[in-house]
Amino acid sequence: MLALTGACTTLAAATTPASIQVYGPGGPAPAMKAAALAFERKTGTRVAVTAGPAPRWMGAARVNADIIFSGSENMMTEFSHSFAGQLDPSTIEPLYIRPSTILVRPGNPKNIAGIRSLAAGNHRIMVVAGAGQVGMWEDVAARSGDRELLAGFRSNIAAYASNSGLALERWKSDPSIDAWLIWNHWQAANPEIADQVFVEPDLVIWRPMDVALTQQGRSRSEAVSFVRFLKSDEARGIFEAQGWKR
């Protein structure tokens, strides 16, 4: 399983020339990179996946992007505005989805059992309040319609991160954070620093990874073929191994 190195604030660009240029956020990047390698082995066509916070790669993507991927629908909507005239909106498609989950310290020393446990106990919670998680924590905490659950959860939030990469750095550097509400694949990519506690079924939410072709990518058979590969059984196995579902 791929591990994220240096968090997702560090871009991951290929060091060799690539036939296909793919850009997106850090969360889906491990699975996307694994799929890119599988596609390259299968076809001989190189794929460069550049991942991290959008401001770091947006300039380059405006020059040569063939494919853009996102970590949520609202993120892809933002990309469609940022790349207006370049991104082909008719090609936007959600491919895989993943659930919200709770990351806890290895061994779960605080015996955290779920969202209700976090809201009721004296815990320090970290949430991501930007990028692909805009509104995620409140959607989870308020899904039951219980105002007191939402209020209890909010009162225990000790850290708001603007993106998941920064949240990962805070998790590593601040052991006072007891729990981190995030997507499940972050634990799959970093099993040595966190265990996973599932969000209760009635509170869990799911958000997708979308892909879209740029106008340039739509005109290139290699890019179209890579998007088609991402929908294949082989790619599905890669994504599902890292916590994503169709």
Rank of each mutant, 00 (worst) to 15 (best):
L95M: 11
P175N: 11
E192W: 10
R154V: 03
V140D: 11
A158F: 15
E148H: 14
W137R: 01
D174C: 09
D88Y: 07
G145S: 04
A189D: 14
D202L: 10
Q187T: 03
Q133Y: 15
G135Y: 15
P201S: 08
A142T: 01
D195G: 00
E148Y: 08
V199M: 06
G165K: 04
I193E: 07
N111P: 01
W137G: 00
M136I: 05
A141Q: 00
A84R: 11
G152Q: 09
W183V: 05
A119N: 11
I102E: 11
F153P: 00
S173R: 15
P94R: 01
A129V: 08
R143H: 12
D88G: 00
L150Y: 07
D202K: 13
G85H: 02
I193P: 03
N190S: 08
L203V: 05
G114M: 04
H185R: 09
A151Q: 13
D146F: 13
L166H: 06
W137N: 03
W186K: 02
P94Q: 04
H185G: 03
I182W: 07
A179C: 09
A159W: 15
G114I: 01
S82M: 14
G145N: 05
A189N: 11
I115N: 04
I115A: 03
S176G: 06
P106E: 05
H185L: 08
N190H: 12
W180V: 04
Q86G: 05
A194I: 04
A119H: 08
R124Y: 11
W186P: 06
V199R: 15
K110Q: 14
S117N: 06
L95R: 12
G114K: 09
S144L: 13
L103D: 05
D195I: 00
F83R: 09
W171I: 07
T101V: 08
E169F: 03
D195W: 10
S100I: 04
Y96S: 06
R143P: 05
P191Q: 08
P191R: 08
Q86S: 04
P201G: 03
A188W: 06
V134S: 02
Q133V: 02
E169P: 09
A113T: 06
P99Q: 10
L95P: 01
V104S: 02
N108E: 09
V197C: 13
N184W: 02
V204A: 10
W171C: 07
P106C: 06
A141D: 01
I112W: 00
W183I: 00
I177Q: 12
D88N: 10
D88T: 01
G121D: 10
V197L: 15
D178I: 04
P175Q: 09
A119K: 10
A131R: 03
V134G: 08
F198H: 11
R98T: 07
